[in-house]
Design a binder for these strands. Sequence first.
DNA 1: TTGCATTTGTGCAATTCAGCACAACACGCA
DNA 2: TGCGTGTTGTGCTGAATTGCACAAATGCAA
Lengths: 208, 208
Amino acid sequence: MAFNSNIPDIVIGRLPIYLRALNRLAQEGHEVTSSHELGKRLGISSAQIRKDLSHFGGFGKQGTGYQISYLEEKLRQVLQVNREWEVALVGVGDLGTAIAHYRGFADRGFHICCLFDNDPQKVGKKVGEGLVIQSIDDMPNVIKKNNIQIAMIAVNAEHAQEVADQLIAAGVRAILNYAPINLNVPEGVHVQYIDPVLHLQRMTFYLK
Amino acid sequence: MAFNSNIPDIVIGRLPIYLRALNRLAQEGHEVTSSHELGKRLGISSAQIRKDLSHFGGFGKQGTGYQISYLEEKLRQVLQVNREWEVALVGVGDLGTAIAHYRGFADRGFHICCLFDNDPQKVGKKVGEGLVIQSIDDMPNVIKKNNIQIAMIAVNAEHAQEVADQLIAAGVRAILNYAPINLNVPEGVHVQYIDPVLHLQRMTFYLK
DNA sequence: TTGCATTTGTGCAATTCAGCACAACACGCA
DNA sequence: TGCGTGTTGTGCTGAATTGCACAAATGCAA
């Protein structure tokens, strides 16, 4: 499975959306779908879906469409989500606690395996099932030891860059950042941002 | 302030990012910045920032750059976030509760004004400061009466489309959807999605 | 078998988007 | 004043992305 980086990021970004829609279709009892049906659901042109998928091989059958279970499997392979990933979570305030309790991660293959906080009062406390908050001082060692490649940052904006630097130094290569700030990271490290207010501000422009 | 819709969505989408960075710069004590400095922070070319801003007028001064407070004000005007917005939240499970408690919304002008849930056990309960969960049956009336235009959906995937339809029928025109499903909405209604797993799946592709 | 209705995968055209490069301007300093 | 440095706003060019349109393939029905 050796896809070079000549596949546009924007295409990769759509694959999880396709995968999510396929999940849904399967749940609804469909066994086969078409680029047209998918596109209609997602508000994306059928040609684009076909072209995106064709980057990775011919997964469909002319005249018939795509077998959902097969396409799901193939997309999981491409995205490398046909396995379990261990994820570290840094910052166990209100937001971090909510994230730690959210079951949607484990359900879809992302297992939060360790929590870190810099507040000595919190270190040692239990959160959810079997998770204990560890000191941020131990973070580098724990991450290296467990070879963790993905982390979520839920500290405040002031500390986010510092935390990111430490994570990256310890070997993390993908960061999901909940802090409302842009991170500067070296080449080869991937960052995604979640800031709900940003999404809201994106929509108010269009309200009259 | 009559900007036609000939301004690309992708440009509008970057404005909140600029605004967030300007906030940060102001907090750090800067009074003036340049497209180059902003771009360096955000990983965006300076030319793009200048071009984006130029869609709305000349906010900078040649040789000097941009006065941060002035540019912030102008961007707030453009995005219409120089006012308070009332937001409805539907679904008060774990996720909805966390959202209701999150202070980041009110801090940046989005005031969660009402909560709805379909569980009779929850109706009447208090959440946070002064918010009481209302029955989803009352949702249309409350939304119409208060002329609420923005809603957040934190119900499960099965109910999200139904809730969205009701919200839109009641007058909502912007939806922030936390449910892991794509919504079909009529023209003129805007939807933004938050699904952290989707962001994670976007990054695993690149991990070796 | 033949014909018809579908649907994929893809070459090509059109559109959108990003970046370069420079004239015009601003400021500070000698 | 005059010069050097710095920065904006923008026309133009190139790149990236999307969409069209069709040949090839599939399945079904007559």
